[in-house]
């Protein structure tokens, strides 16, 4: 049983479907049933049953489980990932190996690695530098981003992603930071003057792997395990390609809707990263005992 929160045309569903199809085609007497759109568990309620073996697989933004393993907060940390190829190198690095060790403590393992990117949308103006969010009511995706944006002088408002559209329309919100796919699926472009997408450099990368319960995996036959690994390898390559396309797709949708498109320069990126070091990195290091070691591992990836 595989659970996730997305609809059938989301790439994360397609990744899960691909693994399920490959495993089915391998004919190893293993059938993966996919429960999408939170039909089994709510988005943030998936990690606990996964870790206790009540759920077999899930596609999950790992930072959702940051409350159980604070180290996971590094998988949604501003400025840690520069672009999709860098993200792929991170996934294969000692940094990820260290995180996988943490997952093993919860009886969880990774089948498919993958990062998705996102950007900023402003109701009245472009957001590229920290100064731009000063005094704006902002909704951020993720704890570390909230800390960084608060550090930039933004006012943080927390609400469900389904409320964003109305909140921007009525003016409760003036800026939003979320994933490229959410920007499109919630039609945020209708309420936006300027969009800052993930481009050559991007601030917002979220690690969203396909996870599996480790004991369940180890209880499978050798042939079944191999089929899963083969399917996962194929899906991972697809995931990376599609993740890149998704950013471009969101830019097209916003541009078609007549929204101004702004680009973040490497200097802007550096300014955000400096700010993040003072805010979210600092808070992370205070919270996680071996945080510095993990952060160094991540920063060491070229």
């Amino acid at each position: 049983r595989l659970s996730h929160q997305w609809s059938n045309n989301d790439i994360r569903h397609k990744v899960a479907q691909m693994v399920a199809d490959e495993v089915a085609a391998a004919n190893v007497d293993l059938d993966i049933k996919i429960f999408g759109s939170q039909s089994l568990f709510k988005a943030r309620e998936q990690y606990k049953p996964l870790s206790r073996g009540q759920l077999d697989m899930t596609v999950l933004p790992l930072s959702y489980a940051g409350g159980q393993q604070p180290a996971y907060n590094l998988t949604l940390m501003p400025g840690l990932v520069k672009n999709h190829d860098h993200a792929a190198r991170l996934s294969a690095s000692p940094f990820m190996a260290a995180l996988e060790e943490k997952m093993a403590q919860d009886d969880v393992m990774v089948l498919v690695h993958g990062y998705l990117a996102g950007g900023f949308a402003g109701k009245d103006k472009c957001i590229t530098r920290p100064e731009d969010v000063q005094g704006l009511q902002t909704r951020a995706a993720g704890k570390a981003f909230e800390q960084m944006l608060a550090g930039a002088g933004a006012s943080i408002a927390s609400m469900a992603s389904s409320e964003i559209y109305n909140a921007m329309q009525t003016g409760v919100l003036q800026a939003v930071n979320t994933s490229s796919s959410s920007f499109v699926s919630y039609r945020i472009y209708e309420q936006t003057k300027c969009y800052t997408p993930a481009g050559d450099v991007a601030l917002w990368f979220m690690y969203q792997p396909l996870l599996m319960n480790k004991s369940t995996f180890e209880g499978l036959t050798e042939a079944q395990q191999q089929a899963l690994r083969d399917g996962a390898a194929k899906a991972q390559a697809y995931y990376l390609e599609e993740a890149k396309k998704e950013d471009a797709e969101s830019v097209k949708v916003f541009a078609d809707a007549g929204v101004e498109i702004a680009q973040m320069t490497p200097e802007d990126f550096a300014a955000w990263r400096e700010l993040a070091k003072e805010t979210s990195y600092k808070a992370f290091l205070e919270e996680v005992a071996d945080g510095q070691a993990l952060l160094d591992l991540a920063l060491a990836v070229e």
Partner: peptide, 19 residues
């Protein structure tokens, strides 16, 4: 029987909604 373990978690989760 193990699925019964999930009931309190689901009850809590359904109420865990600001709306």
């Amino acid at each position: 029987a193990r699925s019964l373990e999930l009931i309190p978690e689901i009850l809590f989760g359904k109420l865990d909604n600001f709306a």
